[in-house]
């Protein structure tokens, strides 16, 4: 616990994050370039869906990220609630906009993939519907956080909401799956992940890893800004600014 407080001190974390960010950004770039290369040039054409399946390399990682970030947000929120660690509060709050944009990306790319596959921009496909509800959950989280002025209170209230949400996500997911199989009209085929070949799996994993590191990079950048803002009354921030100017 004492280590946690040392590493979780805002001053220490600010410098650590400053050193880590460029490395994480570089790693993100490498992973994404490799993933794009393998996905666009190396992976063979899918015999059922033609070239359109390449949208999968954006859509599926984005959908994974949208859930991963929500779980991170709820986990960090729980730690912040129980041990009252400010850093985790800030991390949780800064997850939401990034997570919401990945959810948005998953929704729009799903629709762009659906148009050539289903012949319609939107179908009530199980994955798209779950993503839509997840998007609503993110919006609710951000709306609640934005409507409370005191940052500590906002963080605690939204952490409770994220925990309620994270218990509900599997239930919602399961319900939507059930509902979908019940109402699935025969003509609408499922855009599933096509039977996966290693040459398709590699770019998929690389893109997912790239998105993950991208998320951590952006979260660190956002947290650094928030630390400066929240700690503006302390001497270390004053010293930091003076040494830079």
């Amino acid at each position: 616990m004492q280590y946690m407080h040392k590493y979780a001190s805002p001053k220490f974390f600010y410098t650590l994050a400053g050193k880590l960010t460029p490395w994480m950004a570089a790693l993100t770039a490498v992973l994404l370039v490799a993933g794009l290369y393998l996905g666009l040039f190396v992976a063979p054409v899918d015999f059922q869906q033609g070239e359109s399946y390449r949208i999968m390399f954006i859509h599926v990682p984005a959908a994974w990220m949208s859930m991963f970030i929500y779980v991170c947000m709820a986990g960090a929120g729980a730690i912040a609630l129980v041990w009252n660690v400010k850093l985790f509060e800030m991390f949780a709050g800064n997850c939401a906009p990034v997570g919401a944009s990945f959810t948005f990306l998953a929704l729009v790319t799903g629709s762009l993939w659906g148009k050539p596959m289903w012949g319609a921009w939107w179908a009530w496909d199980a994955r798209l519907t779950s993503e839509l509800i997840l998007f609503f959950l993110y919006i609710g989280y951000m709306a609640l956080e934005a409507s409370i002025d005191d940052p500590r209170r906002a963080a605690r209230a939204s952490a409770i909401l994220a925990l309620v949400g994270v218990v509900n996500i599997p239930v919602i997911h399961f319900s939507v799956e059930w509902w979908n199989t019940l109402h699935q009209p025969a003509s609408v085929g499922k855009v599933g992940t096509p039977s996966i070949h290693p040459s398709m799996l590699a770019p998929l994993l690389l893109m997912s890893l790239g998105f993950t590191f991208y998320f951590f990079t952006v979260a660190l950048m956002r947290m650094r800004n928030e630390i400066l803002e929240r700690e503006r009354h302390t001497t270390w921030v004053a010293q930091l600014l003076e040494s830079k100017s």
Partner: peptide, 30 residues
């Protein structure tokens, strides 16, 4: 892209836009 160019490239373009926007916002905020 075998006739799917519009769908594929708008997906990749939108992804690029979202990634860049999420980088730009914290930099401006900073």
């Amino acid at each position: 892209m075998g006739g799917y160019g519009f769908y594929v490239w708008s997906s990749y373009g939108l992804a690029l836009l979202v990634l860049l926007l999420n980088l730009y916002l914290p930099l401006r905020r900073r």
